[in-house]
């Protein structure tokens, strides 16, 4: 089975065809919650990428030792360990962002995207393929968070990474506050998912 797809293919599929948020609809909670600014989206994407890479690495190394009926428990404990590391690291070096993201860093533990990668890829494949897959998925996750973050920050606060990009005079009085509030998250993700579906349909017809 392992020889069927190369590492590069496995890496690319995570970014495009199997994008965790926009196509597989996994890991939706952080995608909605922390994308009210580009900075938060980037930090969240980085943390999740670190966790998925490390958990895929460990799971892949242990794959011959794990008994099937306890595997979910092993996955969650592995993930919880690395999330604790990421959480302490962010609290030490990026305190402001870590406060803004709040409970969503520990909530990476229950991000279905990461458990899904361990279950689908890491438990069956060698270290190389698992790592390639984890990097692809991590980058795909970060990119989709970034897309949402850019749309919501520019429309909601008129800024990009805290720099003013839309005319301040207009945006001070007429900002789309709704975009940085919870409903804006659902609406933006709904529209982006619809657009991605449309582009995939068109791509299939063309090919």
């Amino acid at each position: 089975m392992a020889a069927e797809t190369g590492n590069l293919e496995q890496f690319k599929t995570g970014i495009l065809d199997n994008n965790p948020v926009l196509v597989q609809l996994l890991g939706m909670c952080p995608a909605l919650a922390v994308t009210n600014s580009v900075e938060n989206a980037l930090v969240m994407g980085g943390a999740a990428t670190f966790v998925v890479v490390m958990s895929n690495l460990i799971t892949s190394l242990l794959r011959n030792l794990i008994k099937p009926h306890v595997r979910i428990l092993i996955f969650t404990l592995t993930i919880a360990t690395f999330v604790t590391i990421a959480d302490l690291f962010l609290k030490a070096y990026l305190f402001k962002v870590s406060q803004a993201i709040g409970a969503f860093i520990p909530l990476i533990i229950v991000n279905c995207m990461i458990i899904c990668r361990a279950e689908v890829v890491a438990i069956k494949n060698g270290v190389g393929k698992s790592l390639a897959d984890a990097f692809g998925i991590g980058i795909g996750f970060t990119l989709s968070l970034l897309t949402l973050g850019i749309i919501r920050e520019i429309l909601g606060s008129g800024t990009f990474l805290n720099y003013q990009v839309l005319p301040k005079t207009v945006w001070d009085t007429h900002a789309w506050i709704i975009m940085i509030l919870p409903p804006g998250a659902f609406l933006t993700l709904g529209v982006v998912v619809g657009v991605v579906n449309y582009m995939r349909e068109r791509g299939k017809v063309g090919a």
Binding site: I178, P182, A185, F186, L187, G190, V193, G194, N197, Y198
Partner: peptide, 18 residues
Amino acid sequence: KPFRGAGITLLVAGILAL
């Protein structure tokens, strides 16, 4: 068609959240 399934569900969720 592109909005069937997840897309429309998320839009409805947005209106509910509103």
